[in-house]
Amino acid sequence: MTTTLAPPVPQTPTPAAPTEDLGALARRHGLSVSGARPSLPSYVRQLWSRRDFITAFATARLTAQFSQARLGQVWQVMTPLLNAAVYYLIFGVLMNAKSGVPDYVPFLVTGIFVWTFTANTVQAGTRAISGNLGLVRALHFPRASLPISLALQQLQQLLFSLGVLAVLLACFGELPARSWLLAVPALFLQTLFNTGVSLVLARLAARTPDISQLMPFVLRTWMYASGAMWSIQNLATSGRFPEAVVLALQCNPAAVYIDLMRFALIESFTGAQLPPHVWALAAGWALLAFGGGFIWFWKAEETYGRG
């Protein structure tokens, strides 16, 4: 700094001197206040008009992800395949820990893939605003575009995983059946749920970046509690825990979506293994998370991007 603070009294004429009411002038000409939060309906409209941007951003992120790798987009399929191979090797072959679950490998791989979708979306949500500050500070768009777009990117990625999953299931004798169609509503509800949680975390992490440091631990705990690798149902039959605990574990949203997917895809996974009112539960979690998350995110709309 070569200059010191100087009072604003230069010898040259300052045209802004006549202090007529600037606010009145602005209102007379129909100017609006800059950076004000739009109402919820108009926010939704703005978001809808940006749908092209939301999808393009998701696809762009997905493409950019592997653009530095030699094999490029092949990794979209390779990553889930390698994941499945690792889990099969450890749990299916080495430990032979089928733990009383029929069709353990399909059970395991479905659980892992569905869980990964939730985990990655939530993790991406924590960086939706804080990781895109450049974009937020340079351009004007409803900020919810970012977490929604990132959730969409994870969904696209999941579709690759599901392709791998279908092949794997076929290898283990689970051929496509009519029940597979149930995967569509299950996935839809899970996507809504994930997006809602991601919106909540986007707002939290925009104010407190430390959240993203904490998330891996929260997510790991959540994964082990959701029965991605083991059967909650077997816990119930073992009788070591009161029924209420088992029911609570089964009703946790991640477990609900994982089990619905297993129910849809795996023949030996019957409706008896699902908690009661499972579809209502799945829809309830989805609506609660998405509706609540969206409104809560919108309430801080004008503060995102603040220094």
Binding site: L22, G23, A26, R27, H29, G30, L31, S32, V33, S34, G35, A36, A60, R61, T63, A64, S67, Q68, N132, G134, L135, V136, R137, A138, L139, H140, E302, T303, G305, R306, G307
Partner: peptide
């Protein structure tokens, strides 16, 4: 409208757009 003001008001006609040198594009694309 990208930074909130503490006191005072800014009124604008339409939506002003900032053309910064670091407008956000993706380098890998």
């Amino acid at each position: 409208g990208l930074l909130p003001v503490d006191r005072g008001r800014i009124y604008t006609h339409g939506q002003p757009s900032l053309l910064g040198v670091n407008a956000a594009l993706m380098n890998d694309l």
